[in-house]
């Protein structure tokens, strides 16, 4: 049954890693702007020499 102490230690470590990941995400500003990235992801990468695209 003493294996449970190892498991607790391990699971707490994993949980703390997630907390650290969360704090890191706040720190790097991932919650600052929760709208613009949703638009940005829809922009196509430009392919040069594409001229006929304008007419739709």
């Amino acid at each position: 049954m003493s294996v449970i102490f190892v498991l607790i230690g391990f699971s707490s470590f994993v949980a703390i890693m997630f907390l650290a990941a969360y704090i890191w995400s706040v720190k790097t500003g991932q919650y600052d702007d929760n709208y613009t990235p949703s638009i940005r992801i829809l922009f196509d990468n430009e392919v040069k020499k594409e001229t006929s695209k304008k007419n739709s």
Partner: peptide, 13 residues
């Protein structure tokens, strides 16, 4: 605002 995010994370965790 950022501080509040930290606090909420720590408390929730």
């Amino acid at each position: 605002n950022k501080k509040l995010w930290y606090k909420i994370g720590v408390a929730g965790f």
